[in-house]
């Protein structure tokens, strides 16, 4: 076959193999993303309306007048960091126990993972019932003031309510990853350290945790993207309330566009949101990767 015939054949095959994936990817993600940058400089009030170029007006409006956006950003940030730390510490702890020779190991793993398979909307509603009705009943029975708090009725209880639900949901998933990693750690290294007289705490902080940094990188990344992008659990648990105090950025953008009809401002917010997510993710991955060591 001639040289050019072969090239045409290769291009044809590339179209068959790569074409469909690339086509849908460009249509559904790349094109909307790029046109979103254009829309962020327009005033646009609905899917069928015509966008009108307004320059940097939307960004000025958000940066100087939209306090709710920054309240949402700050809430999302605090919520993410809190949940990130709690879920990872718990997941790591659970994993340390579950690698021991327990009789109920498989059952425990199933139970801890179970919340993860249920959709966010359903989880939010389940916990709305637990936090409001369940907790007050437990409060009456046990007389513990923790349960008698006005759950979901104040900004603080809304915040911690969300932290509880996210922790309950995510721990099992991260635990699975930590278990897989811990089982792979070279036992010879641990034995050598043990022979040298290393105690439990030393073993943990100086050997197990540093060797687990690759798994920690992955788990922090996952927890970060789950909580920073949280939408459906928030919508069904608190709807962003009370007084928009638990409104995440994802929810704020959704409301801006689809409830208030400000598509242009919504697009501008989504660009800012993308930049924030990008910067935080890069920073996290780079920092934790730096802490990884060779065994």
């Amino acid at each position: 076959m001639s040289e050019s015939g072969n090239r045409i054949k290769q291009a044809g095959l590339a179209t068959v193999f790569l074409g469909p994936a690339v086509f849908f990817f460009i249509l559904i993600i790349v094109f909307p993303f790029i046109s979103g940058i254009y829309y962020s400089f327009t005033e646009w009030n609905g899917v069928n309306a015509t966008p009108i170029w307004v320059g940097i007006n939307n960004f000025q409006q958000i940066l100087f007048h939209d306090t709710q956006f920054f309240t949402s950003l700050w809430f999302t940030f605090r919520f993410t960091v809190t949940t990130l730390v709690i879920t990872n510490v718990l997941a790591f702890g659970f994993a340390m126990v579950l690698i021991q020779p327990l009789r109920t190991k498989v059952l425990l793993r199933t139970i801890f993972f179970l919340p993860n398979v249920i959709g966010g909307v359903l989880l939010g509603f389940i916990w709305r019932f637990i936090l409001v009705n369940g907790f007050s009943t437990i409060g009456e029975i046990t007389k513990l003031s923790f349960f008698a708090l006005p759950w979901l009725g104040s900004p603080e209880t809304g915040f911690w309510g969300l932290v509880i639900v996210y922790t309950w949901r995510s721990v099992g998933y991260l635990m699975i990853i930590y278990i897989a990693h811990l089982l792979n750690i070279d036992t010879e290294l641990m034995e050598a350290a043990h022979m040298d007289g290393a105690g439990g705490v030393y073993m943990f902080t100086r050997i197990i945790v540093p060797l687990s940094m690759p798994a920690i990188t992955v788990c922090l990344f996952l927890a970060l993207s789950w909580t920073f992008k949280s939408f459906d659990i928030v919508l069904s648990l608190t709807s962003g309330g009370p007084f928009r105090s638990t409104e995440t950025v994802a929810l704020n953008i959704y409301l801006e566009a689809f409830r208030y009809g400000n598509y242009g401002v919504g697009s501008a917010k989504s660009i800012l949101y993308f930049l924030v997510v990008g910067v935080i993710t890069l920073f996290q991955v780079r920092q934790t990767k730096k802490m990884e060591v060779e065994a």
Partner: peptide
């Protein structure tokens, strides 16, 4: 694209 939040494409996507 895996890192990109859905909200960043959501609004123009609805137009598509």
């Amino acid at each position: 694209a895996m890192v990109t939040p859905f909200q960043s494409i959501m609004i123009p996507l609805m137009r598509v």
